[in-house]
Protein backbone atom coordinates (compact mmCIF):
# COMPACT_ATOMS: atom_id res chain seq x y z
CA UNK A 1 0.00 0.00 0.00
CA UNK A 2 2.73 2.38 1.05
CA UNK A 3 4.64 1.59 -2.11
CA UNK A 4 1.55 2.16 -4.22
CA UNK A 5 1.10 5.64 -2.77
CA UNK A 6 4.77 6.30 -3.41
CA UNK A 7 4.35 5.29 -7.04
CA UNK A 8 1.28 7.49 -7.43
CA UNK A 9 3.24 10.44 -6.11
CA UNK A 10 6.13 9.65 -8.44
CA UNK A 11 3.75 9.71 -11.41
CA UNK A 12 2.35 13.08 -10.30
CA UNK A 13 5.91 14.36 -9.86
CA UNK A 14 6.79 13.22 -13.39
CA UNK A 15 3.77 15.13 -14.70
CA UNK A 16 4.79 18.31 -12.89
CA UNK A 17 8.35 18.07 -14.18
CA UNK A 18 7.13 17.44 -17.72
CA UNK A 19 4.85 20.45 -17.44
CA UNK A 20 7.70 22.67 -16.27
CA UNK A 21 9.94 21.35 -19.02
CA UNK A 22 7.25 22.05 -21.62
CA UNK A 23 7.63 25.74 -20.85
CA UNK A 24 11.23 25.86 -22.08
CA UNK A 25 10.70 25.86 -25.83
CA UNK A 26 8.27 28.74 -25.61
CA UNK A 27 8.61 32.40 -25.12
CA UNK A 28 5.71 33.47 -22.89
CA UNK A 29 5.62 36.75 -24.83
CA UNK A 30 4.67 35.25 -28.20
CA UNK A 31 0.96 35.15 -28.85
CA UNK A 32 -1.45 33.47 -31.20
CA UNK A 33 -3.83 35.87 -32.75
CA UNK A 34 -7.54 34.98 -32.76
CA UNK A 35 -8.38 37.06 -35.85
CA UNK A 36 -6.05 35.36 -38.31
CA UNK A 37 -8.13 33.30 -40.74
CA UNK A 38 -11.24 35.39 -40.07
CA UNK A 39 -12.76 38.30 -41.99
CA UNK A 40 -11.17 41.61 -41.08
CA UNK A 41 -13.42 43.93 -39.08
CA UNK A 42 -14.72 46.64 -41.37
CA UNK A 43 -13.92 50.29 -40.78
CA UNK A 44 -14.61 53.65 -42.37
CA UNK A 45 -12.05 56.22 -41.36
CA UNK A 46 -11.04 59.72 -42.39
CA UNK A 47 -7.61 59.93 -43.95
CA UNK A 48 -5.06 62.65 -43.17
CA UNK A 49 -5.41 63.88 -46.74
CA UNK A 50 -9.13 64.51 -46.26
CA UNK A 51 -10.55 61.50 -48.12
CA UNK A 52 -12.54 58.72 -46.44
CA UNK A 53 -11.51 55.08 -46.69
CA UNK A 54 -13.78 52.10 -46.11
CA UNK A 55 -12.27 48.64 -45.95
CA UNK A 56 -15.31 47.01 -47.51
CA UNK A 57 -15.00 49.26 -50.55
CA UNK A 58 -11.50 47.89 -51.08
CA UNK A 59 -12.66 44.27 -51.41
CA UNK A 60 -11.23 42.58 -54.45
CA UNK A 61 -7.79 43.99 -53.74
CA UNK A 62 -5.24 42.79 -51.19
CA UNK A 63 -4.75 45.23 -48.31
CA UNK A 64 -1.91 45.74 -45.82
CA UNK A 65 -2.91 47.56 -42.62
CA UNK A 66 -0.02 48.84 -40.55
CA UNK A 67 -0.64 50.18 -37.02
CA UNK A 68 2.28 52.35 -35.95
CA UNK A 69 3.27 55.42 -33.97
CA UNK A 70 5.90 58.11 -34.22
CA UNK A 71 6.98 57.48 -30.59
CA UNK A 72 7.65 53.80 -31.22
CA UNK A 73 11.25 52.77 -31.82
CA UNK A 74 10.40 49.53 -33.63
CA UNK A 75 8.28 51.50 -36.12
CA UNK A 76 11.40 53.35 -37.25
CA UNK A 77 13.12 49.98 -37.60
CA UNK A 78 10.44 48.55 -39.89
CA UNK A 79 9.74 51.71 -41.87
CA UNK A 80 12.39 51.21 -44.55
CA UNK A 81 11.16 47.70 -45.39
CA UNK A 82 7.60 48.96 -45.53
CA UNK A 83 8.59 51.80 -47.82
CA UNK A 84 10.37 49.44 -50.23
CA UNK A 85 7.45 47.02 -50.36
CA UNK A 86 5.02 49.86 -50.99
CA UNK A 87 7.15 51.16 -53.88
CA UNK A 88 7.33 47.69 -55.40
CA UNK A 89 3.74 46.55 -54.90
CA UNK A 90 1.64 49.74 -54.75
CA UNK A 91 0.11 48.93 -58.11
CA UNK A 92 -1.77 45.86 -56.92
CA UNK A 93 -1.71 46.06 -53.09
CA UNK A 94 -3.37 48.76 -51.01
CA UNK A 95 -1.19 50.01 -48.13
CA UNK A 96 -2.92 51.69 -45.19
CA UNK A 97 -1.24 53.19 -42.14
CA UNK A 98 -3.12 53.84 -38.90
CA UNK A 99 -1.24 55.84 -36.26
CA UNK A 100 -1.92 54.49 -32.76
CA UNK A 101 -2.07 56.82 -29.77
CA UNK A 102 -0.23 59.43 -31.71
CA UNK A 103 -0.58 63.14 -32.32
CA UNK A 104 -1.35 64.31 -35.82
CA UNK A 105 1.71 66.57 -35.88
CA UNK A 106 3.96 63.80 -34.53
CA UNK A 107 2.81 61.35 -37.21
CA UNK A 108 3.18 63.95 -39.96
CA UNK A 109 6.71 64.84 -38.82
CA UNK A 110 7.68 61.17 -38.79
CA UNK A 111 6.44 60.70 -42.37
CA UNK A 112 8.18 63.87 -43.58
CA UNK A 113 11.42 62.65 -42.10
CA UNK A 114 11.37 58.98 -43.07
CA UNK A 115 9.21 59.15 -46.20
CA UNK A 116 6.04 57.30 -47.13
CA UNK A 117 3.22 57.98 -49.50
CA UNK A 118 0.51 55.50 -48.58
CA UNK A 119 -2.79 56.59 -47.05
CA UNK A 120 -2.74 57.37 -43.34
CA UNK A 121 -6.02 57.02 -41.46
CA UNK A 122 -7.17 58.71 -38.28
CA UNK A 123 -8.40 56.47 -35.47
CA UNK A 124 -8.71 58.93 -32.59
CA UNK A 125 -10.94 56.71 -30.42
CA UNK A 126 -8.70 53.64 -30.99
CA UNK A 127 -11.88 51.76 -31.95
CA UNK A 128 -10.39 50.30 -35.10
CA UNK A 129 -7.21 49.34 -33.28
CA UNK A 130 -9.17 47.54 -30.55
CA UNK A 131 -11.38 45.94 -33.20
CA UNK A 132 -8.26 44.51 -34.80
CA UNK A 133 -6.85 43.38 -31.44
CA UNK A 134 -3.94 45.80 -31.52
CA UNK A 135 -2.14 46.15 -28.20
CA UNK A 136 1.38 47.28 -28.97
CA UNK A 137 2.66 48.90 -32.14
CA UNK A 138 3.88 48.07 -34.68
CA UNK A 139 1.33 45.46 -35.72
CA UNK A 140 0.69 44.67 -39.36
CA UNK A 141 -2.28 42.82 -40.86
CA UNK A 142 -2.35 41.16 -44.29
CA UNK A 143 -5.86 41.01 -45.77
CA UNK A 144 -6.65 39.06 -48.95
CA UNK A 145 -9.04 39.94 -51.82
CA UNK A 146 -12.00 38.48 -49.94
CA UNK A 147 -11.39 40.60 -46.88
CA UNK A 148 -9.97 37.75 -44.77
CA UNK A 149 -6.94 38.35 -42.52
CA UNK A 150 -4.31 35.89 -43.75
CA UNK A 151 -1.41 36.86 -41.53
CA UNK A 152 -0.43 39.22 -38.78
CA UNK A 153 3.01 40.41 -37.74
CA UNK A 154 3.42 41.66 -34.18
CA UNK A 155 6.54 43.77 -33.90
CA UNK A 156 8.59 45.17 -36.76
CA UNK A 157 8.10 43.63 -40.23
CA UNK A 158 11.20 42.74 -42.20
CA UNK A 159 11.69 42.60 -45.95
CA UNK A 160 11.53 38.80 -45.76
CA UNK A 161 8.30 38.54 -43.73
CA UNK A 162 6.72 41.23 -45.90
CA UNK A 163 7.57 39.28 -49.03
CA UNK A 164 6.07 35.98 -47.85
CA UNK A 165 2.97 37.58 -46.37
CA UNK A 166 2.39 39.75 -49.45
CA UNK A 167 2.67 36.70 -51.65
CA UNK A 168 0.07 34.99 -49.46
CA UNK A 169 -2.54 37.71 -49.98
CA UNK A 170 -1.66 38.79 -53.49
CA UNK A 171 -0.73 35.44 -55.02
Amino acid sequence: MKRLIGVVFLVIAAGVVALLASGFGRNPATVRDPLVGHPAPDFTLAAYDGTTVSLRALQGRPVVVNFWASWCADCKVEHRALLQAWRADRSHVVFLGIPYQDSRSGAAAFLRRYGGGWTQLRDPSQDTAINFGVWGVPETYFIDRHGVIRAKVTGPVTAATLQTDLREIAG
Binding site: K2, I5, G6, L10, A13, V16, V17, A21, F24
Partner: peptide
Protein backbone atom coordinates in the same frame (compact mmCIF):
# COMPACT_ATOMS: atom_id res chain seq x y z
CA UNK B 1 16.62 26.93 -16.24
CA UNK B 2 17.01 23.28 -17.34
CA UNK B 3 19.68 22.75 -14.67
CA UNK B 4 17.30 23.98 -11.99
CA UNK B 5 14.68 21.61 -13.34
CA UNK B 6 17.19 18.76 -12.92
CA UNK B 7 17.80 19.78 -9.30
CA UNK B 8 14.07 20.08 -8.67
CA UNK B 9 13.37 16.65 -10.16
CA UNK B 10 16.22 15.04 -8.22
CA UNK B 11 15.05 16.49 -4.90
CA UNK B 12 11.42 15.67 -5.67
CA UNK B 13 12.00 12.06 -6.62
CA UNK B 14 14.49 11.31 -3.84
CA UNK B 15 12.17 12.87 -1.27
CA UNK B 16 9.20 10.80 -2.38
CA UNK B 17 11.25 7.61 -2.36
CA UNK B 18 12.75 8.37 1.06
CA UNK B 19 9.44 9.31 2.64
CA UNK B 20 7.77 6.22 1.18
CA UNK B 21 10.45 3.79 2.29
CA UNK B 22 11.41 5.29 5.64
CA UNK B 23 8.34 7.24 6.70
CA UNK B 24 5.61 5.66 8.75
Amino acid sequence: GPLFLVLFSAVLVSSIVLLTLRGG
